Computed example of a mutant assay.
Amino acid sequence: MSIPVVRAETFYLPPPARHPEDWSQIPPAQRVFRWAEHRQQRRLVPPAGFILGQQAFARINHNRWVADCLCGSAQVVTPADPRMACTECGLGWIRLVFPEDVAAVEASVAGLLPHERNWWHDDDPAWDRPAAAEDEDQELVALVAETAAAAGLVVGTPRSSLSPAIEEASR
């Protein structure tokens, strides 16, 4: 059984002393305000309207759907209610961009360990988005081969196929 990707409606839950369904009537994107109020012990009022023309990209980060605020804060979000407002800086509601096929994206990371489940939208210019893995791998392979060749080493061969000088040194 696979561990599902965490969404706002399963992350932002009432305190243990309250019934789990106590927040069921609160839209998932607004639950972060109730959750933060309880944990930070300060009153937070969700904004009244949307900021037109602003959007953020949702991504999977360590098995959680998250989105970043312009201030650098982030929160767990959900495709069931694709909007967010910041509990830190007070930024009003902004639209979130999720992939067209959320289930397919979640399925694409399901085979990984939860802490390795990361996904970015193709259009997301995020600062922490890794370079294409294939490009990095090819560059690393080329660098290792070049360095090994300069040192007279054979790379990627079984020990018995190493150069005689290396075999002699390893005895």
Score class of each variant (00 low, 15 high):
19 H>G: 00
162 L>E: 07
94 I>D: 06
120 W>E: 02
65 W>D: 04
166 I>L: 13
59 R>K: 04
123 D>V: 00
144 V>K: 08
89 C>M: 06
132 A>I: 10
30 Q>P: 00
122 D>A: 08
50 F>G: 06
44 L>Y: 07
127 W>N: 14
166 I>D: 03
127 W>H: 15
97 V>I: 08
45 V>F: 10
122 D>P: 07
67 A>S: 15
11 F>I: 05
166 I>F: 03
28 P>K: 01
168 E>Y: 09
32 V>C: 07
45 V>A: 14
23 W>I: 03
95 R>D: 06
73 S>T: 12
89 C>K: 07
2 S>E: 14
26 I>F: 05
35 W>E: 02
17 A>I: 08
146 E>L: 10
134 E>V: 13
45 V>T: 15
47 P>L: 11
65 W>T: 02
11 F>S: 08
160 S>G: 12
155 V>K: 07
55 Q>F: 13
76 V>L: 01
148 A>T: 08
139 E>P: 00
96 L>C: 02
167 E>M: 10
12 Y>V: 05
74 A>S: 15
38 H>K: 09
116 E>S: 08
129 R>S: 05
104 A>G: 01
33 F>T: 03
128 D>V: 03
96 L>S: 02
129 R>C: 05
122 D>R: 07
95 R>E: 07
64 R>K: 15
84 M>P: 03
64 R>H: 06
8 A>E: 04
27 P>W: 01
65 W>Q: 04
161 S>C: 07
21 E>K: 13
103 A>G: 00
108 S>Y: 01
152 G>S: 05
39 R>G: 12
59 R>L: 01
39 R>N: 15
132 A>C: 13
38 H>Q: 13
163 S>Y: 00
115 H>M: 14
135 D>K: 14
147 T>Q: 14
28 P>A: 04
27 P>M: 02
79 P>E: 03
49 G>W: 10
169 A>W: 10
48 A>I: 06
88 E>C: 13
132 A>S: 08
12 Y>G: 03
151 A>Q: 09
51 I>H: 11
131 A>G: 14
13 L>C: 04
43 R>D: 13
26 I>S: 04
38 H>M: 09
160 S>R: 09
101 D>H: 04
30 Q>F: 05
159 R>L: 12
109 V>G: 02
52 L>F: 07
142 A>R: 14
66 V>A: 05
52 L>K: 14
116 E>W: 06
93 W>L: 01
78 T>E: 00
115 H>W: 12
